[in-house]
């Protein structure tokens, strides 16, 4: 357990600059966005007031987030891409790097499953730190919005309205409904493990392993797809459907972890 924590620390440490880089990029990019779109609204407001034909509606922070759809989402999409690639790199860097760290890492006196779990934990930590950083950033951005927009033009909005205003939050990142949040992130965690095991299949059996990996991912995808598409109006009661879905999820998770642990402990080649 102790060594597992040390391994997680090591993985986080190795990625820290990229993580901070992504945070910095997101902060700068979105701050510029908030200032720019607030200014556009303010100019519109002043213009309308000057012409005097109608009294413009005050606008809220959520409106700004809504205005800046793509601009706001871009650093988030970049971060998602980087983290997606790092799911692969967190393994491959130990083989292809100049240091070939795999030689030392797999010779450490600890259960190999700890290495697998530590890498997965690190990926999840990166995802959750980015998400919580985004939430914190939204709060700060609202302060900024309140600071630059005169109170005459401004109306208050709920924080959840701001989150709901951008499709990137609304759809995958921050579902406001509890169940959807659990389902999305649960599936995401499973996907990380499935990819890890697929990567290990490739690392253990090389070319043939790529075929195994593709078949394995396809099998897991089919199982989860089947679970997702169980018709709620059909044969089963909703509670039964939930139980079946949970069952399938746990089986896929169990098989993935068992296979991953076995590969990393017995079959890996540095």
């Amino acid at each position: 357990m102790n060594r597992y924590v040390k391994l997680v620390h090591m993985e986080v440490h190795r990625f820290r600059y990229v993580l901070f880089g992504m945070m910095l990029l997101t902060a700068i990019w979105q701050t510029i966005g908030v200032i720019y779109y607030a200014k556009v609204r303010m100019d519109g407001w002043r213009e309308a007031a000057r012409l005097g034909n109608y009294a413009p509606r005050p606008f809220s922070f959520a409106d700004i987030i809504g205005d800046s759809q793509f601009w706001f989402a871009l650093p988030i999409l970049i971060s998602i891409t980087v983290l997606g690639l790092y799911i692969f790199l967190i393994w491959y860097r130990d083989w292809i790097g100049r240091d070939k760290f795999a030689y030392r890492m797999f010779a450490l006196p600890t259960a190999r499953s700890n290495i697998y779990l530590a890498k997965a934990t690190a990926i999840l930590l990166f995802v959750f730190s980015m998400v919580s950083f985004q939430l914190l950033l939204l709060l700060l951005e609202r302060q900024l919005f309140n600071g630059i927009v005169p109170s005459d033009y401004r109306m208050s909005s709920l924080f959840s309205e701001a989150v709901a205003a951008n499709r990137v939050f609304e759809l995958p990142l921050l579902p406001l409904e509890g169940v959807r949040f659990v389902v999305y992130y649960g599936t995401g965690i499973l996907a990380v493990f499935v990819l890890f095991t697929a990567i290990l299949l490739e690392r253990c059996y090389r070319w043939l392993g790529i075929v195994y990996a593709i078949l394995y991912v396809a099998a897991c995808g089919t199982a989860i797809g089947f679970a997702a598409n169980l018709n709620p109006y059909g044969y089963f009661y909703p509670s039964e459907i939930t139980a079946i879905r949970l069952g399938i999820y746990l089986v896929v998770m169990g098989v993935t972890l068992a296979l991953g642990f076995r590969l990393v402990s017995k079959k890996i080649t540095v």
């Binding site: 240091d99 070939k100 795999a102 030689y103």
Partner: peptide, 14 residues
Amino acid sequence: YEQVSYIPDHLAVP
């Protein structure tokens, strides 16, 4: 891994 120390043919340190 505690009983045997392994010195590979390269340093294997980041």
